[in-house]
Amino acid sequence: MYTSSDICGVNPIAALPFTAQGELDYTSFDRMLGHLAATGIQGLTLFGIASEFPKLEDSERLRLADQFIASLSGTGVFRAMSVTDHSTEVAVKRARDYQKRGADALMLLPPFFLQPDAAAISHHIFSVLEAVDIPVMVQYAPGETGLAITPEQLGEVAARYPHAVFKIECNPPVDYTREFLKRAPQASVLNGYAGLYMLEMLAAGGKGVMPGCSFSEIYVQIYHLWQTGKQQEAQALHGKLLPWIRRWMTHCEYIIQVEKTILYKRGIISTEYCRHPGWTLTAEDSEAIDTFIMEFSL
């Protein structure tokens, strides 16, 4: 059984492949999971924002959850699933169900629809944490949710629940993380946001990164260089990646579509389809993606 300290390293958010008609492509999904397991990642998370989770039917979600657990079984990759329900009661049921299905960890997106107050948000987070005993990555993504959580509030969560892990992706996240870790030095912190602040976060005490999944090999290489004391090489490779992810992270739907297109052009999934509403890439975007794939030998 995994503990909070095991949740580290490169833990991408799984994309969801669709057919050209917008139906889930379970064959491509299985092929993508096999590819990702072979890249050297430490973990993989399903139903994050990059998984287009708001665009799924409940029946699709359950089938994907079972396939995700089964396909990654025995690979050594920890399997996390995100609980995104806005009802506390439903989130608790979902968390227990995912643990029962075999998830090694959960990610929790706090509720933000209709702007619940701080007490309601704390109750939601605490309720889910108390419902399971596997690690739970509490997600802080104010740019996407419009929800502000202070370092003090997160510190209270860390103090009460040792199996909590924290995914911090405010922009920028570094000062926030330092403040949080002053209050909870024992806490494990990961960062999303396409890894824009990956090395700064590792230097600040972070334990890993949660980017998209279409070029996981690059993040794995950066992380390995950093962990083996080759900071200059890590910074050089990250610096080479930065202009690309800065451009694509100007809108969430933009980078979701870019990641899907990269997976398609690499032959990992069968189409680049994203469910609507989404983002339409330009011819210039497509040419840039070709250049990116060639430049990084993907």
Score class of each variant (00 low, 15 high):
residue 2 Y to G: 00
residue 5 S to G: 01
residue 5 S to E: 09
residue 7 I to L: 11
residue 8 C to M: 05
residue 9 G to M: 04
residue 10 V to R: 04
residue 11 N to R: 09
residue 13 I to R: 00
residue 14 A to H: 00
residue 15 A to N: 15
residue 16 L to C: 05
residue 17 P to F: 03
residue 20 A to R: 14
residue 20 A to D: 13
residue 25 D to V: 00
residue 28 S to W: 09
residue 30 D to A: 11
residue 30 D to K: 14
residue 32 M to F: 05
residue 32 M to D: 00
residue 36 L to T: 00
residue 36 L to V: 10
residue 37 A to D: 01
residue 37 A to K: 01
residue 38 A to F: 09
residue 44 L to P: 02
residue 44 L to A: 04
residue 46 L to V: 08
residue 48 G to L: 06
residue 50 A to I: 14
residue 51 S to M: 07
residue 51 S to G: 08
residue 52 E to P: 00
residue 54 P to N: 08
residue 54 P to K: 07
residue 56 L to H: 13
residue 57 E to Q: 14
residue 58 D to E: 08
residue 64 L to K: 09
residue 67 Q to F: 10
residue 68 F to V: 03
residue 68 F to A: 01
residue 73 S to M: 11
residue 74 G to D: 02
residue 80 A to V: 05
residue 81 M to D: 02
residue 82 S to M: 14
residue 83 V to A: 02
residue 85 D to I: 09
residue 90 V to Q: 11
residue 91 A to P: 12
residue 93 K to I: 08
residue 93 K to R: 15
residue 95 A to Q: 01
residue 97 D to V: 12
residue 97 D to R: 10
residue 99 Q to C: 01
residue 99 Q to P: 00
residue 102 G to K: 09
residue 104 D to P: 02
residue 104 D to Q: 11
residue 108 L to W: 05
residue 109 L to F: 15
residue 115 Q to I: 08
residue 116 P to Y: 14
residue 117 D to G: 04
residue 117 D to M: 03
residue 118 A to K: 04
residue 126 F to T: 12
residue 130 E to R: 14
residue 131 A to Q: 07
residue 131 A to H: 07
residue 132 V to S: 14
residue 133 D to K: 15
residue 134 I to S: 12
residue 136 V to S: 11
residue 139 Q to N: 00
residue 139 Q to I: 13
residue 143 G to S: 14
residue 147 L to E: 04
residue 154 L to I: 08
residue 156 E to M: 13
residue 157 V to N: 02
residue 160 R to C: 11
residue 161 Y to R: 09
residue 163 H to G: 08
residue 163 H to E: 03
residue 163 H to S: 06
residue 163 H to Q: 14
residue 164 A to Q: 00
residue 169 E to A: 01
residue 174 V to N: 06
residue 179 E to R: 11
residue 180 F to N: 03
residue 180 F to A: 06
residue 182 K to Q: 15
residue 183 R to K: 12
residue 183 R to S: 02
residue 189 V to E: 01
residue 195 G to N: 05
residue 196 L to N: 02
residue 196 L to S: 00
residue 201 M to K: 04
residue 202 L to C: 13
residue 202 L to I: 06
residue 202 L to A: 13
residue 204 A to E: 12
residue 205 G to I: 04
residue 208 G to E: 11
residue 208 G to I: 03
residue 208 G to A: 09
residue 208 G to C: 06
residue 210 M to A: 02
residue 213 C to V: 05
residue 215 F to H: 04
residue 217 E to A: 03
residue 222 I to Y: 00
residue 223 Y to E: 08
residue 224 H to D: 11
residue 224 H to W: 11
residue 225 L to M: 15
residue 225 L to H: 12
residue 226 W to E: 02
residue 228 T to D: 11
residue 229 G to P: 08
residue 232 Q to A: 15
residue 232 Q to N: 10
residue 233 E to I: 12
residue 233 E to N: 03
residue 233 E to R: 13
residue 241 L to D: 03
residue 243 P to R: 08
residue 244 W to V: 05
residue 245 I to C: 00
residue 245 I to L: 06
residue 251 H to L: 13
residue 256 I to T: 13
residue 256 I to N: 07
residue 257 Q to N: 11
residue 260 K to F: 06
residue 261 T to K: 07
residue 264 Y to F: 09
residue 265 K to T: 01
residue 266 R to S: 08
residue 271 T to W: 03
residue 275 R to V: 07
residue 278 G to N: 12
residue 279 W to H: 13
residue 280 T to H: 01
residue 280 T to G: 01
residue 284 E to Q: 10
residue 285 D to H: 12
residue 285 D to L: 03
residue 285 D to E: 04
residue 291 T to F: 02
residue 293 I to V: 10
residue 295 E to Q: 15
residue 298 L to A: 05
residue 298 L to P: 07
